[in-house]
Amino acid sequence: MKAAVNRIVLYSLTALLLTASALTAQERNWERRSAPVDVPVTVFHSPQSANLPTAETLQSGEWLFEISHRFFPAVSEGADALWGFDGPVYNRLGLAYAPTDRLLIGIVRTNLHDNLDLNAKVRIAEGGQGATPWMMGVSGGVAFNTEAPLGADDNEVQAYGQAIFNVLLGDRFAVGVVPSALYNPTIRLATREVDFALGLNAQLYLSEQASFLAEWVVSPTHPDLDPAEFEHDSGSFGIELETGGHFFKVLLTNQIRMNPAQYLAGSLDAFEAGQWRVGFNVTRLLHF
């Protein structure tokens, strides 16, 4: 009888202790409660190429300040023009702000016709993380030519809209297609039409800091203008260096106009080595 009681007590205590032990062990058996955060899709690192926009936007609350130059003399003018650096220059200053991760609003001004451009860009969709990252966006703006050239009205208005398709191939080669519409491309003419242009851009990322970039804008022709100031398509190529808060682009280009309402219309000079000009874009990202 005593042995039976012993066995019952032993079994009961065993069950109790094992249960308690299991419960305690379970408490110690901590498990991760969430997966690592998904990192944002990246195709182009910068919100802009030489001139064309990319679908990249900024993080909510970020500011972007830009200063860009395009030098008038061609590099081919040699030492007399300091290989293009003598100037004068077209200058562009810009400021953009991201109220959300997907929306970028900005203002840019260039001294060519004192063109003042109010713009917005929206990143619509993205995907392909881990495979073939892609991104889509739209941008648009209204431009006022506050120092109108001969033939144009004061503050003559232009407007444009652009669809942006970007994809990253093989982790290093980003490609963009930017079909664009431009209202009133030739402000020196009385007619105010809508033209269409096609922007193509690509960027080869050599490292996280350095890349080659190139872009081409197929613009409509305007044979009724004399001189044919928008006769040619625009081509640009160069390098981009990026740090944690800057993009530095150094370019050769036949297009010295920088605001969208201007470069989309075309270029005065052909894309030939003798016509290449030096340009740079410097952008600084800020967060207050």
């Binding site: 991760r32 969430s34 690592p36 955060v37 998904d38 990192v39 944002p40 990246t42 690192h45 900024l58 993080q59 609350g61 970020e62 991760d101 996280e208 990026e242 740090t243 944690g244 808060g245 990202l285 800020l286 967060h287």
Partner: peptide
């Protein structure tokens, strides 16, 4: 443990550099 991919420096580009260049998250 700290999820390093979630580090936010206030600038998206710098976040990406932190993730991709340095921490390799």
């Amino acid at each position: 443990e700290v999820d390093l991919g979630s580090l936010d420096t206030g600038i998206g580009l710098r976040n990406r550099h932190m993730r991709d260049n340095y921490l390799e998250t």
